[in-house]
Amino acid sequence: MAEPFSAFMARALFDPERGYYTRHIRTVGSRGDFSTSATLSPSLGHAIADWLKAESHLQPHVRHIIEIGAGDGSLMQTLRKSFGWWARRRFTFHIVETSPVLRQEQQKKLGGKFTWHTDLAAALASAQGHAFIYHNELLDAFPATLVQWNAAEQRWLEVWVPEQLHAHHLDPAHYSALRHTSFADRQRCELHVSVRDWLHQWTPHWKSGAMLTIDYGDAFPQLYHRRPHGTLRAYLLHQRLTGTDIYANPGRQDITADINFTDYTAWLQALGFAEVSQHTLAEFLHAH
């Protein structure tokens, strides 16, 4: 079956029966697939707790904290523990989790002091739109639209699976890569159309608070410097796979692409959300 790469990635990661995140992810022990910054060190949880306290001083009416995509639950656990009893009582803690496997894992680890939701709009509804939101390594798992530059014809084509090139139907106004016309022939870029669509779904329900985004990426076009094949890769039992190996084990391996922060911030800006700070993770940990 031929399909756009984004549809393949969506199935490989989130198919209800066979998706990597929905069914096959392992979270426990040394065989676990999670070895993110959150699980490796408690310092990120302490830093986010400190950031939340600072934000709470600026907007004391906000009493809800939402983590989107909470993995094995360790980040939320560290964060809540590092609050004193006063802050723990002050806030209601929410987790947005689409994966039933991870949700079960989180409930086992965290117990009854949290509220789970399957989408962010529902979590925001229960917070009346006033919430502090954070997510760590969430966006890089959103299905990416893959495009390839044709220098001779001076146009971008969309990559399908199995590999074929098709005309795309995207508006270049929304994607910096589609406005870039000086790449070498066959340069590949990933467009997070799915992230933009997702922002459009839930941001109308968000009235006040602040959102912390932590993810791996760069500004455009630096993101693609010396990366003619783009940033897409898969991880199978901690082994890194690129090229057509990404298509080999759908549902068994994680697939990820770096975030184009130029686009991400522009999308939020257009929706009425201002960027108030930008740091490397090291700077953020140092500041908090």
Partner: peptide
């Protein structure tokens, strides 16, 4: 360069 980055956004009215 490519790295983990932290962004904070706020609704315009709160920024």
């Amino acid at each position: 360069g490519t790295a983990f980055k932290c962004f904070v956004h706020r609704p315009q009215a709160c920024a």
